[in-house]
Design a binder for these strands. Sequence first.
DNA 1: GCCAACGTTGGC
DNA 2: GCCAACGTTGGC
Length: 157
Amino acid sequence: VYWLMKSEPDVYGIDQLKKDGRTFWEGVRNYTARNWMRDQMKVGHQVLFYHSNADPSGVVGIAEIVREAYPDPYAQDPKSDYYDEGAPADRWVMVDVGFVEKFAAPVSLAELKAEPALEGMEVTKKGSRLSVHPVSEAHFRKVVEMGRAKGRPVRAS
DNA sequence: GCCAACGTTGGC
DNA sequence: GCCAACGTTGGC
């Protein structure tokens, strides 16, 4: 299974992931996204890393799942922006993701929309807001091809 | 900053 | 269970 995960670069971008090597993906508070993370994500799955609210928004590289879903402690922390008052400890989960590669330049949303081979890809649809969702293998491969065509990517060492 | 799309909440 | 109101996401 392949995935797309969105993050605002001002909050946590691909450069930070490259620097950190891996991170925990806290703060998902949408049941559909939660269910995919909890029920379907497995270690080793590849992820398109997407920058939203960016200039340009688009896929900036590849990450991978390095730890499967476990409870998100921020949901229990009243001081956190992600606090969910009264939520049972197992309501919200997070996964850990590792850096794989950063494209030489983003594959912008405009380019994704313009590519016929990516027709139907979730992120190209109007009103697509889900921050975590699966991507078909064909779409994943195509986006990676487009990203690598931008120049030599930076890979994890 | 605007606004369309969507998910969630809460009154009934 | 319906649905209007509200909050959030995210492109532009």
